[in-house]
Design a protein around this nucleic acid. Sequence first.
DNA 1: CTATGTGAACAACTTCACAGCC
DNA 2: GGCTGTGAAGTTGTTCACATAG
Lengths: 235, 235
Amino acid sequence: MLTAKDIPDATVARLPVYLRTLNRLAEQGIETASSGDLAEAAGVNSAQLRKDLSYLGSYGTRGVGYDVGYLQEHIGREVGSSQDWPVVIVGMGNLGTALANYSGLRSRGFTVVALVDPDPALIGRTLDDVTITDLSELEQTLAVSRPRIAVIAAPADAAQDICDRLVQAGVSSILNFAASVLSVPAGVNVRKVDLGQELQILAYHEQRRKPAGPADLLADPGPVAALVEQKSRLA
Amino acid sequence: MLTAKDIPDATVARLPVYLRTLNRLAEQGIETASSGDLAEAAGVNSAQLRKDLSYLGSYGTRGVGYDVGYLQEHIGREVGSSQDWPVVIVGMGNLGTALANYSGLRSRGFTVVALVDPDPALIGRTLDDVTITDLSELEQTLAVSRPRIAVIAAPADAAQDICDRLVQAGVSSILNFAASVLSVPAGVNVRKVDLGQELQILAYHEQRRKPAGPADLLADPGPVAALVEQKSRLA
DNA sequence: CTATGTGAACAACTTCACAGCC
DNA sequence: GGCTGTGAAGTTGTTCACATAG
């Protein structure tokens, strides 16, 4: 293959972070940045950033650093934000609505092409030029726009059925906000985001703190803002 | 320390999944389950599940399996869902509202004690007995309920300032939905959820697919539902 | 003389495979 | 006989440290 070098999953998961960081620097008119600069802005170790970028090829200049615009362009292409990805959102409760309105989608190369919900009170409403259609007509809706990426923002008990139908309709990447494990055919990619789970992980660590005085952190201002323990996702 | 055995981060990240799985089995009246059963329901390898559980101690019976109720109880305690965690949500747009309404919070031991937003149109409104207060009065609001866990569902450019004030007010665990890297003092735990990032990771893989015929997945029904590639979070 | 790119050491996590117990 | 619990092997990811290029 021409492009598929085989970038580690962990690196792939960080590319969007780098891309956003570069976008921000570019907005500020910064044209060159060293691995140290970039790493700090992205919240990672500089050796890690260099190694990650090295998987994409050699795009830096020794003794100087990286060209922001060039790198931006290149990671963008790698991540696929050079092309436009149609996306369907299933479930238009508060969460689905929040996602549909999220400007970060458009700016990163995603276009919402379909909104689906079973609630008659919602069907027919329009959000940003996209009309909410009936879940029972999912297949017909997708036949038009043929998105390969779907977001499930529906209750857990409906998620598997929706997932099956999405896959049947040609969707091969799913972002699942429902609190359930989806089973899918090989070749379909699923990522799960579960708010309750995230909070429970925080609660676990919260519980393990040294049971010091009550106003612990207030009492000790600490060693000033340090980038620590920023946990993000694994691919 | 008495309890702090030091469970690997990767394991901690899976405990909530196991807990939910156990809850589901318990609801179905199932009282005993083998590591194989549990692993399948949770979408992980059975050896992994056994190793994970072994960090908590020996709670299974050889030749039999695990007692669902007992394990449920035990993981619950470990994860901290035996106690009630007060939580503040900052930012009451669609996303903040979705989170505030999410029933999964209450059921997993979290209570929303404060809702904060700078928009005068929202201040004073009530959601589920909690009144939205002005962001400018954040400190006073938190002085009453003193939550240690906060959710930031605000725009990226406001996130760092909000974060600083939360930490100052005694918050030590933050779930950040804003698309920005937060810098915090040592000892404060941050987890980030970024929808755009998740989609970009999916798009990356989507782009790398073998450029076969267009209706690829429709043409080939594939080797039937197999639990594959379910990516979840790293601690 | 500075900052990249990378082999090699290190650390974390996963899976295997089987001894040990019920 | 069946299933847990766990050392050991295997895999993946991170960090170090330095040769190398500009």
